[in-house]
Design a protein around this nucleic acid. Sequence first.
DNA 1: TTACAATATATCATATCTGACATATTTTTA
DNA 2: TAAAAATATGTCAGATATGATATATTGTAA
Lengths: 103, 103
Amino acid sequence: MNRQKQKSLEKKGWKIGSTAEFLGLSEEESSYIELKLKLSSNLRKLRTEHKLTQVELAKILKSSQSRVAKLEIGDPSVSLDLIIRSLLALGTSNKEIARAISS
Amino acid sequence: MNRQKQKSLEKKGWKIGSTAEFLGLSEEESSYIELKLKLSSNLRKLRTEHKLTQVELAKILKSSQSRVAKLEIGDPSVSLDLIIRSLLALGTSNKEIARAISS
DNA sequence: TTACAATATATCATATCTGACATATTTTTA
DNA sequence: TAAAAATATGTCAGATATGATATATTGTAA
């Protein structure tokens, strides 16, 4: 992960330590963030393919439009649990989730 | 998911509605649980391969032995986030995680 | 068997995530 | 363009997950 990307992520609220701490946790942290972002963007792709608005998806998920927005962005405040549950709610199979992670 | 398995999961604390509610959420719920259990057992496999005790792994994860036990069982009280973070901490790549999910 | 190590289960205060709401910004349509 | 629709951002009370601790159970070597 380059400095540019790191700054971008930090701006969005990701806390990535710098210097030694950054180096130490980097691999794990960035893999986690990558994973999240892949699934997040997959969720958005899926929603648009289904021609749903965020409000409509929120209804399906029994959540709110604002949270769907955060879900799709991969906001630090949303968990993998919620992202994956959302994908499953839209009919995504575990195999498809695996594919998304590998992509 | 057969009745046998459902009862087994319920005993472990999974709340799976019955009748209509069960049918309605079944696909999503059971996929989620499956996913969790796959990654959980993968974590245990990984730990034993590394010849670590739960106490030792807990130290690495900055967690406790009891939570590692729950992690490996896929206890309802542990999130996918924590399971995946733990796998990553043990050096698992995103591709390997995907493989585990697909398996 | 008995002792010891490893794992499982229960509980709880604190931390983090969640849905909801308000509001701002961006995008689309007329 | 202007109005409307869609999406993004900020906040917060309540819900859920977390690490920690204590204790129970299981495995395992003497």
